[in-house]
Each structure stands twice: as structure tokens, then as C-alpha cells.
């Protein structure tokens, strides 16, 4: 009797968990998918987004994501190389690590608050793609460092020894032997970061502003898809368009995360061999 109750509870809660998650995604797709059309993707919005499409918003999303990645990727990958290949275990390095990991734990609204005060106001970049890109780069830096470092750790020591014994310097070894083995790990990090930026709203709201026109300059204000759907929903502009944007957003995120997972698994596979 006790056993039955115990298992029933476990089954019930587990199914409830999965069902809740699936129902949310399913419902959004069900209500939104039918409103996604070619016009929705390629046309400009009118009446604050009540009519028309989301073309400038898709461009804005790509723009902010691209700028964020351009800033964070070189720093993140280089930092990972430093941690995995160069740093010696010491008090300073350990402190740096603790701080870097703390960056991942800072809630996005605080990053947004900082981005607003520092990039938008203090440095005078205004609500712009640049302020947003800089702010999101802070959020994705830990993701990039972690995934690159994990990949670097899986490169066998013998590769490095082989290269060094042939007379290559440490940097030559790192750049020409070790890093090329980590391409997939780095790619996974980039893809995951992309997903993170596309899904982010709070930071974007405080640093990118929310202009609806097509962003051209890096100092233009724009909005991303997640911010657009927030505004549509919160201000009650159009439920239909909000659903369509949400469905497209969910679809993009699922594809991005699925892709990261597939790339990630391939790394695992090739290491086994």
C-alpha cells in the first residue's frame, strides 16, 4: 500500500512536470504558428506592432546578438585558453576564477541596471545596439569561457607534448594544435550564447530601448523579439502578434539549443574513439 502510494506520487509529479513544460510550448506553438507567415517575417510593423510584421525586430535581434558575440567571443575564448593552458594554481588565479563564476550568477536585471547606468548613461552610448551588445556580452562571457575550457580539457596531454617536443613554442602549440581540436566545443558555446541573448529581455529593455525602426548605426535604439513580445503583451497591443512572435521565438530557441546539444554530443562521441 505504502509502496503503491509512493510510486503513484512519483509518477504523478513527474508526468505533471513534463506535461507542464510541454503544454506551455505546445500551447504557444498552437496559438502562434498559424499567424507566422512570409509577410510576418519580411514586413515592417505598423501601429506599434498591432499590424504588419516584425522584420526590423528580427534584424535588431540579429544585430544585438552579433555585437554581443563579437565582443564576448574573442575575450571568452582567450580567457579560457589562459585558465586551461597558462594559469598556475595560485591564490590570485583562484580568486579570479571565483569572481568569473560569480558573473554567471548575477541576475539579468542587475546586469541590465548596470548596463543602463554604465553604458547608456555614464559612457553616453544611449539606448543603443552597442549598449545592449556590451551588456549581453557580460552575460554570455561565463558561458563561452566554460564551454571552451571544458573542450580544452578534453584535448589529450600527449598532443601538447608531441608538439612541444617538435620544437613548437607553447603559444604555437596552443594555437595550431590544441585550439583546432576544440572547434566544436567553442561552437557549442557560441550557439548557447546566441540562445541566451535571443531569450533575454530584462537587459535588452534597459539598455537597447525599444525603437521600432530598422537599426542601421550601432548607436541606434532597437528591440529584440523577446522585448517586442513583452511590449505587445504588457501593453495589450496585439495578442495575435504576441503569439506569433512568441512561437517564432520558441522555435528559434529550440533549434538553437537542439543544435548545441547535437554538436555537444558529437564532441563526446569523437573523444570516445
Amino acid at each position: 500500500m505504502k509502496d503503491k502510494l509512493f510510486y503513484a506520487a512519483i509518477w504523478f509529479f513527474s508526468i505533471l512536470t513534463l506535461a507542464a513544460l510541454l503544454v506551455i510550448v505546445g500551447y504557444i506553438m498552437y496559438r502562434g504558428a498559424s499567424h507566422i507567415s512570409w509577410e510576418f517575417i519580411t514586413e515592417r510593423p505598423s501601429l506599434m506592432g498591432k499590424k504588419g510584421g516584425i522584420f526590423p525586430i528580427i534584424i535588431g535581434t540579429l544585430y544585438v546578438t552579433g555585437v554581443g558575440l563579437l565582443i564576448a567571443a574573442p575575450i571568452g575564448i582567450t580567457a579560457a585558453v589562459y585558465f586551461a593552458e597558462y594559469s598556475k594554481d595560485g591564490r590570485l588565479v583562484r580568486a579570479i576564477r571565483v569572481f568569473t563564476e560569480a558573473l554567471a550568477g548575477i541576475p539579468s536585471i542587475i546586469v541590465g541596471l548596470f548596463g543602463f547606468a554604465f553604458f547608456v548613461v555614464f559612457l553616453g552610448f544611449g539606448w543603443s545596439v552597442l549598449s545592449g551588445g556590451l551588456s549581453v556580452s557580460l552575460m554570455i562571457l561565463p558561458i563561452l569561457i566554460r564551454s571552451t575550457e571544458e573542450a580544452l580539457k578534453t584535448v589529450p596531454l600527449s598532443y601538447r607534448e608531441g608538439s612541444l617536443s617538435l620544437g613548437a613554442s607553447k603559444w604555437e602549440t596552443t594555437r595550431k594544435v590544441v585550439l583546432p581540436c576544440c572547434r566544436k566545443g567553442i561552437l557549442t558555446g557560441l550557439v548557447l550564447s546566441m540562445g541566451r541573448v535571443v531569450g533575454e529581455t530584462a537587459v535588452i529593455m534597459l539598455t537597447v530601448g525599444g525603437a521600432l525602426k530598422l537599426p542601421v548605426s550601432i548607436f541606434d535604439s532597437t528591440r529584440t523579439m523577446s522585448l517586442h513580445m513583452y511590449i505587445l503583451a504588457a501593453e495589450g497591443i496585439s495578442q495575435e502578434k504576441a503569439f506569433a512572435t512568441a512561437a517564432l521565438l520558441v522555435l528559434i530557441i529550440l533549434v538553437i539549443n537542439g543544435l548545441a546539444n547535437i554538436i555537444g554530443h558529437r564532441i563526446g562521441g569523437s573523444n570516445g574513439k
Binding site: A79, V81, F99, L103, I106, F114, P142, W171
Partner: peptide, 28 residues
């Protein structure tokens, strides 16, 4: 010399994350 310079540059990239946290905290 080149190797040492590179190591210093890598270190600079390594502390960006930590410095950002410090900057966020101080600014906040």
C-alpha cells in the same frame, strides 16, 4: 619575449570577467 607578451595578453583576457563583476558591484 613574444611568448611572454602573449601570456600577458591572455592574462588580460582572463581577468575581464572578474573585473566586470568588480565593476558591476562597485557601480551598483
Amino acid at each position: 619575449v613574444r611568448e611572454a607578451t602573449i601570456e600577458r595578453l591572455l592574462f588580460l583576457a582572463g581577468i575581464v570577467g572578474a573585473l566586470s563583476v568588480a565593476l558591476i558591484t562597485v557601480f551598483l
